[in-house]
Amino acid sequence: MTSSPPLRRTRGTGWLAAAAAAAGVVLVAVASLALGSDHLALAAVFERLLHPREDVGAIVWGSRVPRTVLGALVGACLGIAGAVMQGQTRNPLADPGLFGVSAGASLAVVVGVYTLHTTSPTLILVLALVGAIGASMLVFAVAALGRGLASPVPLAIAGTAISALFAAVTSFLVLSDQTTLAAYRVWVVGSLSGRRLDDLGVVLAFVALGLVLAIANIRALDSLSLGMEVARGLGESLLRARLIGLGTITLLTAASVAVTGPIGFVGLTAPHIARRMVGGRHARLVPMSAVVGAVVLLASDVIGRMIGGRAEVSVGVVLSVVGGIAFVAIVRHGRMAAL
């Protein structure tokens, strides 16, 4: 984390990295369709893919296709949100949850389940979106009322404080109601099991807007990586850059949390891997983080499906184990790319 220039890496490696990323995506997507807790033969999977009507039990079209699509989407969102978060805060250990988005989603889900006594997946998804946005707005307001938004520090502090507050209320509600605890426990682990594409409309709107904001934020992120003073000198409006960044992180993290529940490590590790592949320039780093995020999430989900016997191990659990080890390896294997 020295102040060596981040815009390293030569042009030649770009194509190689792009090819590797494309190959990785294809590979995990095929694995995600081919492998599952029901050990269908490869030929049968292929047959069912081509002839949806012969997909008895909807195993391929009802389970594997949705979770492959959703896994790739959520992984990509978390990867981008992580890259933007790390760029905004210039902190390589920043997670997209830092601004309170995940904590807000959790609280909204718990309050919803507690007061409405529902476990409906559609409702939980909407609650998570509302909670994520609400928390982000609150964090933004608290930071804006305080020391302002030019520096990411007030945002991070407000995010941490509000996350802690929300987590306390969440625990209180969860611990005081067994039914809520049961529903929350299933949701909070982070899983792609039983998710459907039907509820995706509103999530896609979040993702689309988040992507637009991410692209709009790329130039500012490059300036910010040189430090606030330089960025300001380059004519960057820091407030505008912060707002767009916060919007990106909120929308993309909210979409992910709504689909799978809070999932850690992807937002943290994907930008690191991407940075090693394409360097720190955000025009490359952001898309590569998306690709790496999708690959990491899908690969972890496939592992979880294969090790649970008749049941499965949730992707959130796999990621906390595999992701943790992988992260330590990244940190230990040479120094981290500087921000």
Binding site: D38, G57, S193, R310, A311
Partner: peptide
Amino acid sequence: DKYSWENAHQMMTGDVLLVNVEGYQVAD
């Protein structure tokens, strides 16, 4: 015995399902 949704077809041998009130009901 726990079954993933993908493996749910393995347990569809019942003519009558008694589903615990604390989990998914018919609509879900």
